[in-house]
């Protein structure tokens, strides 16, 4: 009986089909017709996007050229090894020293310290928001966290100066709380919103199918996040951490106000081995430019040396980006998505 009905069904289908041939003439005209208007629009838009893309690359290259050109005079007077390994930064003294190692280490130590705090913290928050939080809580928390992102860094620096610093001084019994740790804490807090909101987006864009499959196999929320969602969102999470890194390493005002700005090597001898420490006052590369740029004699070696510091910052961020890109493509080969 089902067969009979199927046949009826097909009959109706056939009747509804328009007669073949009537429209073929018109279709042929359509196929060969060129619309000058739409072609021109297409052409202009295409070139416009091309120009926008090229322009942004061009501007970046221009900045790089400007940096290198302005650092060149300093590099002719001071050897590059002196810049990178010298331990005495005294650019305006009668017997100037251009050793940026304390500043490079200051930047690295504070950045690593800040990320060590921010990454686990924000990933936990992102996993909670993306995987476990009830919808209402998620809908309230996400925008609040994103608003924190636009907090002016000078305000956070001020809070570090008057609240976090004294607190750290009391806890560790120091004369001043303006040390690397204080800077790292402030930077970690500044990086949190970026890392949370972008890794939460990444977790959220993991197909629902994967999560359902895991839950139907008896996985708990935590197991689903740990074994399915986080691996599937890994590239987005790495991107989030990279953005957080960029935020932290480039931040100037807050860390300038919080970290104390001493020019000593941020190292502590433990059993005669110098170990990086967060527990003393230190200065970052960015803070150095900000502090010294305003009253440096135009065109002096010191002036050009500040551009060298800019180049060093650029090289650090470039290398970190490169390494994470390579890591990511390796990882994606192992965990191919389709």
């Amino acid at each position: 009986m089902a067969k009979l009905d199927e046949a009826d069904f097909y009959k109706i289908q056939v009747q509804k089909q328009p007669a073949v041939g009537t429209s073929s003439r018109k279709m042929q005209d359509d196929l060969t017709q060129q619309s000058i208007k739409s072609n021109l629009g297409n052409f202009i838009l295409e070139k416009f996007f091309l120009i926008c893309g090229m322009l942004s690359i061009f501007v970046l290259l221009l900045i790089l050229y400007f940096l290198l050109k302005n650092s060149w005079p300093a590099l002719q007077e001071v050897r590059i090894s002196e810049f990178i390994f010298g331990q005495r930064w005294m650019p305006s003294s009668p017997n100037p020293g251009f050793g940026a190692l304390p500043l490079i280490l200051g930047s690295i130590i504070i950045t690593v310290g800040a990320l060590l705090m921010a990454v686990p913290w924000s990933l936990a928050a992102a996993v909670y928001l993306g995987e476990a939080a009830p919808r209402l809580i998620r809908e309230i928390l996400k925008p609040v966290i994103e608003v924190l992102e636009i907090f002016p860094s000078v305000v956070l620096g001020f809070i570090a100066l008057v609240v976090v610093g004294p607190f750290i001084a009391r806890v560790f019994n120091l004369s001043s709380g303006l040390i690397g740790l204080t800077g790292a804490i402030v930077l970690a807090i500044m990086a949190l919103p970026t890392i949370i909101s972008i890794s939460e987006d990444a977790l959220n864009s993991v197909p629902k199918d994967y999560k359902e499959a895991a839950i139907a196999l008896g996985a708990t929320n935590w197991e689903t996040a740990r074994y399915v969602s986080i691996p599937a969102a890994s590239s987005g999470i790495v991107a989030a951490v990279m953005l957080g890194f960029g935020r932290v390493v480039g931040e100037t005002m807050a860390v300038l106000m919080a970290a104390g700005n001493a020019l000593d090597m941020p190292l502590k001898e433990i059993l005669n081995i110098p170990v990086p420490t967060l527990m003393q006052s230190m200065r970052t590369l960015t803070a150095t430019i900000a502090i010294e740029a305003s009253d440096v004699p135009w065109g002096s070696t010191h002036y050009h040396a500040l551009f060298v510091i800019g180049v060093v910052l650029f090289v650090i961020t470039f290398l970190v980006n490169l390494v994470s890109d390579i890591m990511l493509s390796r990882f994606q080969e192992v965990n191919r998505n389709d």
Binding site: D209, Y210, I215, A216, N335
Partner: peptide, 16 residues
């Protein structure tokens, strides 16, 4: 859910 397994409409293997 371990005792009562489920197969879905669209094949949904993990990206593993």
């Amino acid at each position: 859910r371990t005792r009562v397994g489920m197969v879905f409409q669209k094949p949904n293997p993990f990206p593993k």
